[in-house]
Structures are given as C-alpha cells and as structure tokens.
C-alpha cells in the first residue's frame, strides 16, 4: 500500500506533534519508524490509521484519503500499547469481533498464533499480564492481514523469547502474504534487521527516509592503532570512540570514498559497519 504524506500537521492544543511532514513510502516493504520519545511516531501512525484527524495537510493511502473512508480504513491495522483492539472481555471476544470487522481476517492463523504465544481464549484480556496483552495485540495485528499493518511499540511488553517468536512469525507471514508493515520501536538493534527501509522523525519532522543498507553504509567503525585512527578520522564526523590498550575504534558518519578506503588500508586500519542505534542517536541529535 503506497503512503503519501504532504505537509502533514497534527496539533494537540499548543503542541505541534507533526510539523509539515512530507514523505512517500512505495509500500510492500517492512519499514522501521524511528524517533525519540515525543518525536511524533504515534501521532503519525494515528493519522495514517484515522485514529486522529490531521490538523492540516494530506495523507493518501493508494491515492485515497484515509479519514472516514471505509475502503481505506478497512485496509489499515494499527496495534498500540493502549490495547483498544483487544480490551473487550475475553480473548475470544476480541477475536470474535475482529473476525467480523476485518475483511481479510484469518481465523485459523489467529488460533495458531494464540497457541504460539500460549494465550487462553477464555482469559480476560484486562486481567492478563502486560506481555500477554501485548501478544494479544500481535495476534490481532497479524491475523488481520491488513494491507497496511502497523505496530506501535505494541510488543515491548513481551519477554525476549516471545518477541523473537513475534519477529519470526511476522517475517514468515510477510513472506507468505506480502504487505506494507511499519514497526515503531525503541529496540532498534533487535528489530532493525527486519527493516527494508528506515524513516526517522524528530520533533514532528522527517530526518531520514532511506533504504536500510544505504543508511548503514553511511556509518563506519574504524579500528586500529590509536594514532593511526586519530589521523584517519581527522575532518570526519566522529560519533563515538572506544579505546582498549593501544587499539582504538572510532565510529564515523558519512560516505567513505575510494581514497579514504585506500588510506585506511595503507594505515592498517579495519573498516566495519556500525550499529543502526549509533546512527539513530547521531541523526536525532545525540544524547539529551
């Protein structure tokens, strides 16, 4: 599902959550939506799913406006930590309504996911642990098979084994039923291997929208003798440094051309990738 946002603005009273945000996602991929707390991630996904109406600007999904457009909203699923898609009596009750409301609902898959996460159909959702409620959201989000499926930190309450079961299930289902998936997360290192493209927003504005590999190619770990590393990184943007005895590793941001690579080789330095999280911290202005 193609997503086009043009000069998107969302205000909560005096607070501007989205500030003339413009971007396009061609769809059919897994996107990572990254941003610091209060950057506007939840606001953006709320507008994309018609949970909220934008204050100004436009958002089109496959060329059609989303607000109060049943042809579009029926193709969108946003699962949030707030739990509005599952907070209704028992787990079976939540599935009962999701099955009826979702045209693309897969009941057999929902049952399979319930078993995968060890969820009991007769359990009261509000009485579940945070991890189980998160897993319920994952079940509804995946089994909805909506052409645009978004998870807004909704799996953070799950323990590590359950989160990895979710990642495996998501990838397997995405391969079997390709669609547009947006994952918003603070667990960047854990989730980023799934991203095909990354969108970074900060203070309601777009910072970066790029393919994951190209974005990662902008960051390099330069490792070697401390003096050689210091000489090499002079004039480059250094994100951070680590020293272990005579060896030093510096993280630099920016494209390294052939001359730089040759210089590194001549100095006996090793060039390697750096973590997405380091790039994210740099792109959003460093520690605050």
């Amino acid at each position: 599902m193609r997503i086009e946002a043009r000069d998107l603005v969302l205000r909560y009273g005096e607070v501007t959550a989205l500030d003339r945000l413009t971007f396009e996602l061609e769809g059919g991929k897994i996107y990572g939506l990254l941003g610091r707390n209060g950057s506007g991630k939840t606001s953006l996904m709320s507008v994309l799913s018609a949970f909220r109406k934008q204050s100004a600007g436009s958002v089109l999904l496959d060329g059609a406006p989303v607000w109060e457009n049943p042809a579009v909203t029926s193709a969108v699923s946003l699962i949030r930590d707030a739990g509005e898609s599952v907070d209704l009596g028992t787990a079976a009750d939540a599935l009962y309504f999701a099955e009826w409301l979702r045209p693309t609902w897969d009941a057999a898959y929902a049952k399979e996911l319930m078993e995968l996460f060890g969820l009991q159909p007769k359990a009261n959702v509000k009485a579940m642990s945070k991890g189980q409620r998160s897993a319920m959201g994952v079940v509804v989000g995946l089994a909805s098979r909506a052409p645009l499926t978004m998870f807004d930190e909704s799996y953070l309450g799950m323990d590590a084994p359950s989160r990895h079961a979710f990642y495996d299930a998501l990838l397997a289902d995405y391969m079997a039923h390709p669609r547009t998936i947006i994952l918003s997360t603070h667990l960047i290192e854990e989730v980023s291997p799934m991203f095909e493209e990354v969108v970074v927003i900060d203070r309601g504005r777009l910072i970066v929208h790029e393919e994951t590999e190209r974005l990662l190619a902008r960051g390099h770990a330069v490792t070697g003798a401390a003096a050689a590393v210091d000489g090499f990184v002079t004039g480059l943007t250094v994100l951070g440094e680590k020293v272990l005895g005579p060896t030093k590793s510096a993280m630099v941001y920016g494209e390294l051309d052939a001359a730089h690579r040759r210089k590194a080789a001549e100095a006996g330095l090793t060039l390697g990738p750096i973590a997405m999280q380091e790039l994210f911290i740099h792109l959003t202005g460093g520690p605050k």
């Binding site: 018609a50 949970f51 049943p70 909203t73 969108v76 898609s85 909506a146």
Partner: peptide, 12 residues
C-alpha cells in the same frame, strides 16, 4: 475504539 481499531469508520 474497538471498531475504529478494527478498520471501521466513525460513520460505520
């Protein structure tokens, strides 16, 4: 909230 979260409009 349940209906909107499951893809329905407010009018629906």
């Amino acid at each position: 909230p349940l209906f909107i979260a499951n893809g329905q409009t407010r009018r629906q």
